[in-house]
Design a binder for these strands. Structure first.
Lengths: 170, 170
DNA sequence: ATCCAATATTAGGACATCCAACTATTTTAT
DNA sequence: ATAAAATAGTTGGATGTCCTAATATTGGAT
C-alpha cells in the first residue's frame, strides 16, 4: 500500500521528496530539487503527449522542430550549423535528423552558394504540407489544451524565460 | 550572424515562435506552444547540468532517482514494480537501470518473501554512500543555485504541481 | 604561404524508451 | 479442482538521442 489515490490525502511524490530533503538537513537544496524534479516530470508528460500526436505522421519532436525552423525562415532554407544553434542541439544530432527528413523527402540538402564547407537544408513542398498538418494536430490536441489555466501558463512562460535567459539560452 | 547577444534587443526564439504562430492564425495554440517549448528547453538545460555533476560518479539521473527512492524507503528495498510506478517509467527501463546499478554493486536483487513472481531491489552500503555523495554534489552545484529567485521557484513548483496533478501524476 | 578555426560527416559507444514475446507465478472464475 | 486471466519480471530487437573522436574541406588571419 505505497500510495492511496482514493484517500483524502493526495500524495505528491515531489512534496514527499522535499520533506525527505529537509529531514536530512539539506534545506539549501530542497526547493531547487523540487523545481528541477517537477520540471523533469512535466517535460516527460508533455513529451509523451506530443510524440503520441506526431508518431502517426512519422516524425519525432526533434524533426518537427527542425521543419518548423525551416518553415518559418525567409527562404525555407538554413545552413546546418544555424539549425543546431537555434535548436541548441549537437551538430551530429542535426546531421541525423536531416538525414531522416531527407530520406522522407521532407527536406533536401543543397550546397551553400558561397561557402563550400557549408550545407543548406531546404524544406520541400511535401515538408511544408506535413509541417502544417503536424502543427494543426499539435495545436488542437496538445497546445490548445495544455492542462493549465491562462494565468498559470503565462506565469510559467515568464518564469522559464528568466531561467533560460539566466542560463544563456538567448 | 543568426543572433546577437550584444545588441540591445535580446532575441528569444520562443517569443519569436509565438509571433509566428499568431501571424499564421494559430492563436488558440500559441500560448500552449510557448509553454510546452519553454518546458522542453528548461528541462534540457537542467538535465545537462545534472548529468554533468553525476557523470564523474558513474551514474545517470534515472539511476540516481532509483537509488534515492530506495535510500528513502523504510527498509532500503522496494519491488521492481513499485519503482516503476513511483518513477513513472516503463518496467523495462527499471530492469535496465537495476541491471546497471547491480553490476556496480550499488543495489542487489532479492526474491520477494511471499510473492515468488516479484523481485525486491535493495540498496547496498556502497549504494547509500554514493547516493549521499551524489546528493551533496547536486545540492551544492545545481539545486542550491537553480538560476531562479525564491519567489519564481515556489511559483514554478506550484504551477507544475497543478499540471502534474491534472495529468494524473498523483 | 601557412597556420588556425569553422563546417559538416562518419563511426562507434552509452543510454533511455518502447514493443512484442516469453516464463513463471498468482489470482479469479466457473 | 481446474481452467482462464492477470501480474511480475526478463529478454531481444528497434528507434532515437547524445557524445567523442577522427576526417576532409574550406575560410580567414597573419
Amino acid at each position: 500500500m505505497p500510495d492511496d489515490q482514493q484517500s483524502g490525502l493526495p500524495y505528491d511524490p515531489i512534496e514527499e521528496a522535499r520533506r525527505q530533503w529537509e529531514a536530512h538537513g539539506w534545506e539549501e537544496g530542497a526547493q531547487g530539487m523540487a523545481a528541477v524534479t517537477s520540471l523533469m516530470r512535466a517535460q516527460q508528460i508533455y513529451m509523451a503527449r506530443v510524440e503520441a500526436v506526431l508518431r502517426p505522421l512519422g516524425i519525432t519532436f526533434a524533426r518537427y522542430e527542425t521543419m518548423m525552423l525551416l518553415y518559418f525562415s525567409r527562404r525555407g532554407a538554413l545552413p546546418m550549423g544555424v539549425i543546431g544553434s537555434r535548436l541548441q542541439v549537437h551538430q551530429t544530432s542535426v546531421t541525423n535528423a536531416v538525414d531522416r527528413l531527407e530520406a522522407a523527402e521532407l527536406v533536401k540538402r543543397t550546397p551553400h552558394p558561397s561557402d563550400r564547407r557549408a550545407t543548406i537544408v531546404e524544406i520541400t513542398e511535401a515538408g511544408r504540407a506535413l509541417a502544417l498538418k503536424a502543427t494543426e494536430a499539435l495545436n488542437s490536441e496538445v497546445f490548445a489544451r495544455p492542462g493549465l489555466g491562462q494565468g498559470d501558463m503565462s506565469e510559467l512562460v515568464g518564469i522559464l524565460a528568466r531561467l533560460r535567459k539566466q542560463a544563456g539560452d538567448f
